[in-house]
């Protein structure tokens, strides 16, 4: 069988490098603040969707509560800064650690559940944490946390006078998540995970401890999503449970991967590159309610027409037939 690199013409790599250089250089030349903010959202949700895809893609487990980890990350930054006046960069240690810990504790019982039961259990767990945060004074309960605004400071991770700094942090994070996905995919660890996804009993029979593998990847996935929450907190500068942990955020996280292709490396990025600009456009033209209604319709259409996402559908329709001809 041909490997993917043999299938794709060299031009594709040139195109990718070109796009990357363009995203890195063009903002310096000058882009409107609006476009920088749209790109920032694109990077953020591509990043968390890549994180979600680590678990969903490599193990086939659909977690419907990733907003929980997103919120944990956001709140870890918010509490460190607002309550203790510690640099929010420290949240990159604290947030992912708490998120990974929660993934371990909740994964241990829930990974025994099959398909939709697992999805429902993760959904309900995120709801429990959401409701607890709504009542928890330490994190500001339902009022949430408002940041003290600092114009521009690397130490305090706030760049209100120039969003370009957020932009580049977002870009670096996306590249990091892509690299991580690629590394795992080409490692023995990744191969074993995919073996579990494709045939769990078979994987068990050759001595793979399937539960341990799922726990490890779910902890990595949770940690990545938490880091996305930190970036969100640092540029939104206001947190409350409903805006960081609700089902809307879960949809934000899962939709790019579902659209682009669960289990592919570039799928979540492609999905976010389609969804985020589209949703910004819709929000400005027809308002956020109809935008969310259209998002619902997109969900349904993905399942009906491209259940395996854009990347896989393109591979099946256009690239695989070429292989047969050869």
């Amino acid at each position: 069988m041909l490997t993917r690199s043999e299938l794709l013409p060299k031009n594709v790599y040139l195109l990718a490098v070109g796009l990357l250089v363009a995203t890195a250089v063009v903002p310096v030349v000058g882009l409107s603040n609006l476009i920088i903010d749209v790109m920032l959202d694109l990077f953020l949700f591509a990043f968390v969707s890549l994180g979600w895809n680590l678990l969903a893609g490599f193990t086939g487990q659909i977690n419907l509560g990733p907003a929980l980890y997103f919120g944990i990350g956001a709140y870890s930054a918010g509490v460190l800064f607002q309550t203790y006046r510690i640099t929010p960069w420290a949240a990159f240690v604290v947030g992912p650690a708490i998120a990974a810990g929660l993934a371990l504790i909740t994964g241990y019982p829930t990974f025994k559940l099959k398909g939709d039961y697992y999805a429902l259990a993760t959904l309900v767990i995120s709801q429990i944490v959401l409701l607890s945060f709504l009542a928890w004074d330490y994190v500001g309960a339902a009022y949430g946390l408002s940041y003290d605004i600092i114009p521009f400071s690397w130490y305090w991770f706030q760049f209100n006078t120039n969003h370009l700094a957020y932009y580049y942090i977002g870009l670096v994070m996306v590249l990091g998540a892509l690299g991580l996905t690629w590394r795992i995919r080409n490692s023995e660890f990744g191969l074993r995970l995919m073996a579990i996804r494709d045939d769990e009993e078979g994987a068990k029979s050759i001595g793979i401890n399937t539960l341990r593998y799922k726990l490890v990847i779910s902890m990595i996935s949770a940690g990545v999503i938490a880091m996305g929450g930190i970036l969100y907190a640092q540029y939104t500068l206001y947190l409350d449970p409903n805006s960081t942990m609700s089902l809307t955020i879960t949809a934000d996280i899962a939709l790019p991967a579902l659209l682009g292709g669960v289990g592919t490396i570039l799928g979540p990025l492609l999905g976010a590159a389609i969804i985020q600009p589209l949703e910004w456009l819709l929000r400005f033209t027809i308002g956020s309610n109809l935008q969310l209604a259209i998002r619902g319709a997109i969900f349904m259409m993905i399942v009906l027409f491209i259940p395996r996402g854009i990347m896989q559908t393109v591979v099946d329709k256009y690239i695989r037939p070429k292989m047969v001809k050869k």
């Binding site: 659909i62 398909g115 939709d116 949809a251 935008q291 969310l292 969900f299 993905i302 259940p307």
Partner: peptide, 28 residues
């Protein structure tokens, strides 16, 4: 009817999408 044979997760996602659709149209 089109997805009765699909994975349980696909079915869950389609009804999730339907919920988003109904709720936000009503909200509008």
């Amino acid at each position: 009817r089109r997805i009765i044979q699909a994975s349980s997760v696909a079915q869950l996602l389609i009804t999730f999408g339907l919920t988003l659709f109904i709720q936000n149209v009503v909200l509008y």
